[in-house]
Amino acid sequence: MSWIGKTYGSALGKKAAMALSGLLLVGFVLGHMAGNLKAFLGAEKYNGYADWLREMGSPLLPHNGALWIARVVLLGAVLVHIHSAWSLTRLSRKARPKRYYTLTAQQATYASRTMRWGGVIILLFVLYHLAHFTWGMSWAHPDFEPGNVHRNFVEGFRVWWVVAIYVVAQVALGFHLFHGFWSAFQTLGLNHERVNAWRRPLALSIALVVSLGNISLAVSVLMGWVS
């Protein structure tokens, strides 16, 4: 195990850990978005999907078993992602104690330059999102009914400012994914002249699919297309 500690001790190792945990989280947001599109199929299908999530892996795993495994793995990935970002940011801050009078941006994308604060926005949003739909805290969701996923979903998005929060967060997530997914290829050394041309379009597609998919859900409820 010491090689893991030694690798994570280096900045390149931390970057690799950030990339791997990030890719895992990209997989999660893709699945999360795709699964929630079932909301368009009506209450029965959507609630059925929610029940299936709890029975996933049955009978090998107990009730909620796979769900909890996923939660623990995701939490681990989030912690690794944040810790590596935090310590690498500190390393970079130390590397230039005296700033320039002017430093002209050359070709860095808006997405790349907003990774750190974008990440903070996404973290705050995830906490709000959990309070809203998972924990059903009364300040976030006054009309929460445990277990009735479709109803909570519809009631939750009837409020315009809630939808606004989700839209802003999804735009932030889209930018984060656009740079992060491409960046992971660089960090993990996955470059080859045959794949290089596909990395940007792939990152753009994932960013667009995830954020537009999620936005479509919240907006559809607000517009009354889903009830």
Partner: peptide
């Protein structure tokens, strides 16, 4: 790494 910062793939 003992001297410099950490790459964020800005490509500057």
């Amino acid at each position: 790494e003992s001297y410099f910062g950490s790459c964020t793939n800005f490509a500057e």
